[in-house]
Design a protein around this nucleic acid. Structure first.
Lengths: 333, 333
DNA sequence: CCGATGGCGTAAAACGTTTAGCGACTGGCC
DNA sequence: GGCCAGTCGCTAAACGTTTTACGCCATCGG
């Protein structure tokens, strides 16, 4: 199984076997063949632990995502991201460790206590910090482990890749306005940086349109759930909203359900725009207008940025991916 | 950073430091304190490579899933699975490597060529083989790496965890029949073991109900896509089907879209039942009746089985998780 | 007071690689 | 012939742990 064994079988030294297998130095054709066939016979597989120990590289990175036990569906966004990361990993021959933490859990389950961080192991890490993250990020930086933030920004000099959440939401608000909607409600999250950006986009667009920001139309929650989405939508109907911007793919489902349950006509009585785009959103009735973010690309790019960092490039990159409006029918006419 | 350094700082030996940190032997209170505080000061993080090399254990497993580039949505099923696995991993302090392969790719990208398998590294692996898998599985077994199959069965003596696909589909067929549906079309996949099981369930239920299996009503595809789902649904409408069983969560979306585009009344003109259950399926109109499988649990359980194997237990376990019908409104009355 | 026991410390081997350094041989060139 | 360069092999160190084996000392039972 080990180089040693192959060395014994072929009568060569361990060093020669290693060179033959890795092509790290010239080896006579004769020896090379002997080594290769012996390796095949015994089914040699290099021991990564030894290699890592010697080279101080694992060719492995980790991605750490929040896993909200109340909101499993949010994970589907991360699945697209992960697949994007995987694509880059495949190209670069790295492996990917997927780790999670509970954003609402205590210190025990918080991001910096993730096992993968507390051990000297991966070459770098992609992190999706929760909102109260300044401290967390500092503690990661202190480890000296290369990292890139995803879907979150940080005040300090970290590399990060995010969506243009603000613009995405602002576009949606403008679309509502263009359809004559005047009382645009906002259902959002306060528990994450993205949630805050989306909220900011909402306010900004309203201001730009000279529309007042009515507090009664703004419903922020610390976390997302279907039930919470329903509740918010009900509240907004009571307040006489004529449009709902649900800045999260779970909330929008809840809101939609509530609207239908109340027998509201969409979009005549009340328009609705969601966030994130999935195929099914075109299947509901009416087909849902939504703000699309490029999840797969985000994964691919964040991996790329991390790879650059691992390659020793020092610059901090801040990459903002554009969102786009997927205009279907639920927003108005 | 290393034990050696802490040993120097405290004036103790490496061995003592190790014991103090790991609690593997009694260490005087005095020394223990010195070690712990020194470790905290320098931010000691154990080097996993060294530990792995010494202990011959990585406390890491991998899950290898097919990643069909035509059918990204199928991945959402695996996201639930992965979260289930993660839960177990969290409990057992293992890390999880997520790897993929292209089920339609050549040898280069096939399952046994996955890097994580070709290197001596993870303690065990969860595998979702593609359909032509007998050879692939054999080659994995030959590595002597503990493994458990997921969502697939194998003829030989491998442990595996699957859904009761056959029963799930048969239940759906019976439900159709109970609603007076007589010409039940089947849209399925031929490219995977699950697809075949679902097809078998369809045939079995028909036989049991003394209904003929009309070839014109059976549409099998090598792979899944929205477009293909639409195409199949159109074909089935032409053949005069009064019900469609779409045995895949992507196909069902395509089928639904085609039905709506054609202006068919659901379920009066034609009923439809899908596979897998997501929240959004209750949001479309009419709400979709579907066969639910326990994805999260499947992940948790398959991880559990693998853990048992790693614990040295020799038995092969075949676990079949029950499916359930989520009866909404699209199937009929 | 002696031998046994237990607590606590150390030295050193081992895990399987990679790689620097060195040596032996060959061939070509002055 | 002496020298140099190139080719290809080997030895041995190093990576950072865990763990065995051993030693020292204090305590305790007899």
């Amino acid at each position: 199984m080990s180089l040693k064994k192959i060395a014994e079988m072929t009568g060569l030294s361990i060093a020669t076997v290693s060179h033959a297998l890795n092509g790290t130095r010239a080896v006579s054709e004769d020896s090379r063949e002997k080594v290769l066939s012996a390796a095949k016979v015994v089914g040699y597989r290099p021991n990564m632990a030894a290699r890592m120990l010697r080279t101080q590289k694992s060719n492995t990175i980790a991605i750490i995502i929040p896993s909200d036990t109340n909101n499993m569906n949010a994970n589907y966004f991360y699945m697209d991201v992960i697949m994007g990361v995987r694509k880059k990993m495949f190209e670069t021959q790295y492996e990917l460790i997927v780790s999670t933490y509970d954003p609402h859990g205590g210190v025990q389950q918080s991001l910096p206590s993730a096992q993968v961080l507390r051990q000297h192991w991966v070459d770098g890490v992609i992190v999706v910090p929760s909102s109260h993250s300044q401290r967390q990020i500092r503690s990661i930086r202190e480890m000296g482990l290369p990292y890139v933030l995803m879907d979150r920004r940080s005040d300090d000099e970290s590399s990060c890749v995010t969506s243009n959440n603000k613009k995405g939401v602002a576009d949606a608000v403008r679309l509502f306005a263009a359809c004559g909607k005047r009382r645009i409600g906002f259902i959002g999250g306060i528990g994450s940086a993205t949630g805050q950006q989306r909220y900011a986009g909402y306010l900004e667009a309203l201001a730009e349109l000279n529309m007042p920001a009515d507090e009664a139309l703004i419903l922020l929650s610390p976390s997302y759930s279907l039930a919470r989405g329903e509740e918010c939508a009900v509240r907004l109907m009571e307040t006489g909203a004529d449009a709902i911007l649900a800045a999260d793919n779970v909330m929008v489902m809840g809101a939609l359900r509530a609207l239908k349950a109340a027998g509201a006509r969409i979009p005549e009585d009340i328009g609705i725009i969601g966030f994130d785009d999935y195929d099914w959103m075109g299947m509901v009735s009416p087909p849902l207008t939504t703000v699309r973010q490029q999840a797969f690309q985000m994964g691919y790019i964040v991996a790329e940025v991390l790879m650059r960092k691992l390659g020793g490039i020092k610059t901090n990159e801040v990459i903002v991916l554009d969102t786009s409006l997927v205009v279907r029918q639920s927003h108005g006419w």
